[in-house]
Simulated scan of single mutants.
Amino acid sequence: MQTVLKIGTRASQLAMAQAHEARARLMKAHDLPEQAFEIVPITTTGDRIQNRPLSEAGGKGLFTKELEEALYDRRIDIAVHSSKDMPTVLPEGLDLSTFLPREDARDSFIGKTARSIADLPQGAKVGSSSLRRQALIRRIRPDLDVVLFRGNVQTRLRKLDEGVAEATILALAGLRRLGMDHIATDVMALETFPPAPGQGAISIENRVGDEAVTRMLQPIHHVATGQALACERAFLAALDGSCRTPIAGYATVEAGGLSFKGLIITPDGTVWHEIEAQGDAASAAAIGRQAGADIRAKAGTQFFEGWF
């Protein structure tokens, strides 16, 4: 059968699982067989860099650049992403148009010697590449030794087995999509360990004005997830969020209403500011922008200048 849609994705097992989920939803929505959708794995710069933090290498765009080039070149029709990896500003001519129903947004704790972060012995090593997770770990347990932990899920688990660290923290959604959530020894509470904006949500990027593709994507777009992500991404954009900025944000939508909680924290975990906002889900982006402006005013310019 002729290919109807080429689906671009990063080549990791988790990214491929997300592309398979997008394909399955498209197959069901349009009553088309699997072979109508070609999955095109693409290795990104972010996948190749394993020896230093992304904040030093160029930030979130490292996971999207090659996929976006493939969209421009029409080698693919859509790109499937982890929403939390997406920069807040997209290249001209591209649109983050579609969001699949969100998975659990919480982080999971995976311990080799302890079942939770509270149970770790003093001075234990915890591996993470996320500045947000590093800062939140230090806020909860300033005595712990936080070490850099780059790589995909399988690489990080191998590092645990090799004794590089005694524990790590990974998104619960990713483990669930890989059928590996049983390895989580604890799930971090949203109140004490808020997620990254976009965590748990799969997003689809496509070319602006490509009407045939837009029509295919429309039936699989989850409106409530799209509204929640509009709020979270606007909050991030208002704070100039990047991989160098420890920022958390999580919005929920119910019965047309939106509730949002956001946090900014210094990398050492010693100073943080929180914000809450509510409103009509139809005004999601405006709520996020205002929350970002409010928390920036609350923290003061010195908060950002002193660290970033």
Rank of each mutant, 00 (worst) to 15 (best):
D161W: 10
Q302W: 07
F303C: 13
K159L: 12
S82T: 12
C243N: 06
E305M: 14
K6N: 05
E103Y: 08
E274L: 09
T44R: 11
G61V: 15
K6F: 10
A234V: 09
E21A: 14
A251E: 11
L217M: 06
Y72I: 14
G163F: 03
E191D: 14
L90H: 02
G123N: 03
L263G: 08
L67K: 02
I7Y: 01
S116E: 05
L136R: 00
I49L: 12
K60Y: 13
S259A: 03
P195G: 02
K6P: 00
R207H: 07
F235K: 06
Q278D: 12
F37L: 09
R141L: 12
S130P: 07
I7L: 09
H222M: 10
A24G: 08
W307M: 07
E274K: 11
D240H: 02
S83N: 14
F193G: 03
E205C: 14
G174L: 07
T214D: 01
R52D: 04
A22S: 15
A284T: 07
Q50E: 10
S129A: 15
T214Y: 01
A79L: 15
P142H: 04
D186H: 14
L175I: 13
V153C: 11
A105K: 02
A230S: 10
G179I: 08
A171G: 11
A238P: 09
A282F: 00
L96H: 01
L5F: 11
L258K: 02
A255V: 05
R48H: 01
H182I: 14
I42S: 00
V253M: 08
E205V: 13
A19D: 05
R141V: 07
I39D: 03
A57K: 11
F99E: 01
A282L: 11
P33F: 10
E162D: 11
H182V: 05
Q2K: 11
V271N: 09
G257H: 14
I287S: 01
D280I: 12
G59T: 07
T3L: 00
D47W: 05
S55H: 07
I287M: 08
R176P: 10
T9W: 08
L144V: 13
V164G: 00
F37A: 09
G241Y: 00
T270N: 02
D294M: 13
R75H: 08
P121D: 02
R296T: 10
P219K: 09
G279W: 11
V271C: 12
R177K: 15
E232L: 08
N51S: 14
D104C: 02
H221K: 03
F308N: 04
M86P: 04
A284D: 01
A234W: 02
L217S: 06
L160P: 11
Q199F: 03
S108W: 03
G249W: 04
